[in-house]
Design a protein around this nucleic acid. Structure first.
Lengths: 89, 89
DNA sequence: GATTTAATTAGATATTTGTCTAATTATATT
DNA sequence: AATATAATTAGACAAATATCTAATTAAATC
């Protein structure tokens, strides 16, 4: 939960997730969309991976990233709880 | 959106929101639940206020904080989009 | 009106974070 | 096998963050 919110805190990382929503992308393709060096993108991808928001598979010299939504269910549940349960008792 | 995720990133702040889900609380009451000085709590409450996740009203010398869920709808929408739309095309 | 209490603001500081350049690893191509 | 390409790792560094102590503000009580 902590790694998840940590990952979602950064605009670049949120943008990457939105891109991956459309289609799987290699690290290089992701990098093209940002005015940032490859190592910086790598860093963000690593945090997303740690949070299990993306998975990576290597194909030749390319690494393709895929959006993983399972872990988002937790955050959804947490937020929904906050919205729905409020103020009973 | 950015202030929102920024606010949700910190465990202390998430905990505060969970507490406020049950009932409104004064700054002091919130502080009691943490091993942290009053100014630190004030700091967190300020960030939550900036994100519009809580509102504050002063009654005498006390300040009571209330959970505000409206802004959470945005985050919910954003996350749901990520989960539901995925991989079309 | 002086003192206590609740809370915030100001200022200092250690840690975390996001970025960079340089170096490394691994694969593909010539 | 030498070179080029994709990506990551290592190390450095500035900016942001979370915490503290001290000072301030505002309300309540003696």
């Amino acid at each position: 939960m902590n790694l998840l919110f940590k990952a979602l805190r950064d605009p670049t990382r949120r943008r990457i997730l939105e891109m991956l929503k459309e289609r799987d992308l290699t690290a290089g393709q992701i990098g093209e969309a940002f005015a940032m060096t490859a190592p910086s993108i790598s860093y963000h991808l690593d945090l997303l991976k740690q949070a299990q928001l993306v998975s990576a598979r290597k194909r030749g010299q390319f690494v393709t990233y895929t959006l993983e939504t399972t872990v988002l269910d937790d955050s959804l549940g947490w937020i929904l709880d906050l919205i729905k349960k409020g103020k009973r008792k």
